[in-house]
Amino acid sequence: MFSYVFMKILEMKPTTYDRHMDRASRSHVLEAKRAIVKEVTPGSYVLDVGCGTGDLARMMIERTCIVDGFDMNPAMVMAAGERIKTEHLEGKFSARQRGVEGMDGIATETYDAIVSTLVFSELNDDEKCFALQQAQRILRPEGIIIIADEVVPQTWCRRILHSIIRLPLFAITYVIATNATNPLADLAGEMTRAGFTIEKEVRSHGGHSPWSWAGKRRR
């Protein structure tokens, strides 16, 4: 049982964000990224929603994908830009600063895959709905969307335990970062309503951990 709300604190220092996230999550985040990469067909044109420092993008580039990323946090985008320079990823990865509301500027049926880790828990209901509708539009036929995020546990006892663990983390995070996240209550339902067919839904640690990722293809 775990919560990722503290990521807002780690985001304040982008250069160490990925390392600290992996350490704090006992490599759950890294495992999730590896699992996402396995689901994306090599050579795909991918959109990384909330690309952060470009860690996931780099892993996908290793599978010959080309990745466009965007993130709201300018410091994260700057770190991604540094990565592009130092790891010579020009032409394979681009990172822009914008939020999901900017997805309406992307041409219809552009991408083979859309991936997103720990972003939807930061969005409000309207933004989530909008992002999924836009994802539906900009994905090519048979395109795949994979969303990995913190979700509300399935059983009530796990929910209570999750809340007990989360509450102090939430308070500390809010005091330090004046920001927090909300675990997703019905990610599958929201995706279905946006027109996606759910192919796979995974909850890490047999459902004990609220970390979850879901692979869905376009209807």
Partner: peptide, 18 residues
């Protein structure tokens, strides 16, 4: 003043709320 109510929050609200 703290830039929490900002250009992005208004743009996002306008574009996503319908």
């Amino acid at each position: 003043g703290g830039e929490e109510f900002n250009t992005h929050s208004v743009v996002s609200a306008v574009k996503t709320c319908g």
